[in-house]
């Protein structure tokens, strides 16, 4: 796990990235994202949030209307650094007339990987993604999952310092997803920075050190999973009996009450144990019996849904993202 506070250098440091299509479609409205070297970073957000546009700007596929900052220490759009960057786009389309081995060799040649290294690396990676037996088969014979594995392999042919993966587990079965997670963990252990864009929140939750939630072209949340979930923990107290006499007092404490008949549930936002105990006391004083008290940490999905609903706060990153590279 990368500690943000110890970070002295960012692999990706995006400052005020904007993209406007035509005159009125604002895909990105000033995005600031920092990714530490050697960490697995997740980008998530609803459809149309601007995630793919942001990734394409990083990979020079789309030109930003405005963008400051650096990627691997060079200005955004610098083509030279692409030699040490790997990329797997969403819905990629590889030439069906090539074999898997030919594709790896071709893309690696475009990435300026010397021939002897290509010849050594291709079988290694094909083996790593489980395609050794398919190395000489035409790509148009590959299944969707195999194409995805091949796509990941091509992104790693140049032994990149930064890997940008857009929906890397798309089309993979559970075993394939586990393999990808293990591969990502291995890469991180070797010091490779990984930038993930995925709709599969559970996948991101399992592998990412830090995440950013993009909503409507702006950063809505950014931080480590711990930081984000600490902000959104809540306690749920289940009770039986009639607690109507204390409803107003509980509401004044910020608790949400869902009462029905002779049972109910009180939710207390935040990590505030004294409030939890005060609520229990109130419930018991009203004659209600406490059935259970359980802390509930929000999942990434909960955070995303909350961020999507919090339009008024969009743009204000909830966590400090001090940027030593730009200061």
């Amino acid at each position: 796990m990368v500690n943000v506070t110890e970070m002295t250098n960012w692999a990706v440091d995006l400052i005020d990235v904007r993209k406007t299509y035509g005159r009125s479609v604002h895909a990105l409205r000033g995005v600031n994202i920092q990714v530490g070297a050697g960490e697995i970073f997740g980008l998530l957000g609803p459809n149309g949030a601007g995630k793919t546009t942001l990734v394409k700007i990083m990979m020079t596929v789309v030109r930003a209307t405005r963008a400051y900052g650096t990627i691997l220490g060079r200005p955004i759009g610098h083509r030279g650094k692409l030699a040490v960057t790997g990329y797997l786009p969403e819905s990629h389309r590889f030439p069906g007339y090539l074999t898997g081995a030919q594709l790896l060799d071709y893309y690696a040649a475009l990435a300026k990987v010397p021939r002897d290294r290509r010849r050594r690396r291709a079988p290694e990676l094909l083996d790593r993604v489980g395609l050794t037996n398919w190395a000489d088969a035409r790509i148009d014979k590959y299944s969707k999952g195999m194409l995805q594995r091949l796509g990941i392999a091509q992104a790693l042919m140049n032994d990149p310092e930064l890997v940008v993966l857009d929906e890397p587990t798309d089309g993979l079965d559970p075993v394939g997803r586990r393999d990808v997670r293990e591969l990502l963990a291995d890469l991180r252990d070797k010091g490779t920075t990984i930038f993930l864009n995925s709709h599969l929140l559970s996948e991101l939750e399992m592998v990412c050190d830090r995440v950013t939630i993009l909503v409507d072209g702006l950063v809505a949340r950014q931080g480590t999973l711990r930081e984000l979930t600490d902000h959104t923990v809540e306690y749920k107290i289940a009770f039986t009996g009639d607690a109507a006499s204390v409803h107003s007092t509980l509401a004044s404490l910020g608790a949400k009450i869902e009462a029905g008949g002779k049972s109910g549930l009180v939710s207390i936002p935040g990590h505030n144990l004294s409030k939890v105990n005060e609520t229990i006391d109130l419930l018991r004083s009203s004659g209600a019996m406490i059935e259970s008290v359980s802390p509930h940490r929000f999942s990434l999905e909960d955070i995303l849904v909350e961020a999507m609903g919090a339009d008024a706060n969009v743009g204000a990153s909830h966590l400090p993202t001090e940027n030593p590279a730009s200061s």
């Binding site: 990979m59 596929v61 083509r79 990629h92 389309r93």
Partner: peptide, 15 residues
């Protein structure tokens, strides 16, 4: 220039 093909090509260090 098909989407998905051009993305990979442009992500390589070639002008």
């Amino acid at each position: 220039m098909q989407r998905g093909t051009i993305d990979v090509m442009l992500s390589k260090p070639i002008a």
